[in-house]
Design a protein around this nucleic acid. Sequence first.
DNA 1: ACAACATATCAGCGAGGAGTGATATGGCGC
DNA 2: GCGCCATATCACTCCTCGCTGATATGTTGT
Lengths: 114, 114
Amino acid sequence: MAQFVDDRKSATIERRAKLFRGFADPSRLAILGALCNEPLAVHELVERTKLSQPNVSNHLRCLLECGLVASDRHGRFIRYRISSPRITVLLNDVDALLDVVAEGVEACDNYREA
Amino acid sequence: MAQFVDDRKSATIERRAKLFRGFADPSRLAILGALCNEPLAVHELVERTKLSQPNVSNHLRCLLECGLVASDRHGRFIRYRISSPRITVLLNDVDALLDVVAEGVEACDNYREA
DNA sequence: ACAACATATCAGCGAGGAGTGATATGGCGC
DNA sequence: GCGCCATATCACTCCTCGCTGATATGTTGT
């Protein structure tokens, strides 16, 4: 069992926070969610997420740099995929937690609703 | 197995993002991490996290409203605790994912390093 | 080589949220 | 009741991040 350090300055906590921030955006979640089903090229992600193309590219760059997705070139397409099944696990666990706290989260007005 | 919707506007995705944002802050992670070990009163959290007292209170209000922590009054102390073991599970999942992507996350300069 | 498509990059704007400081509320002991 | 401690609340500032629009790079087919 992990032993949680409490000091905010802990490198462990900083890393966790940074990783969580990677997931803490609807656009990136839409992209990651889509990639959990199957690898996709950028223009396909644009279609499905209805985000602008530069926007998708920007998020992909970030996700790529963070190691959350990987890419291969296929002709003039670049196919992106999630880098680890642990990402799917994480998303499923979030849903499991939401089963318990969904109402609270929606009610919480410290964050805007989109 | 959950079926991930890709449209960013999906309520599911919004909820996930909102929940992730709850975890996407070093101060809240420090608080949650400390509470994973044992229930604590506010002034104890202040000591351990080295955050200011109003700051801790603000975060606790948010976490409470979201249903991530619960509280009971004990005399003039208010003891906070995590509301569900699934939170611990989630934090452990993040650490597991960090085992794989830690370097990438640290290297990613789209987010500031705190 | 040129046209068309696929993707990446960059500057700038705007909004949301974290932290602080001052202050308010609430419970306890004397 | 009064002083003290524990906690909550509020207004304000600063900074970070996400989005857009324009443009650059790259790849394929003809």
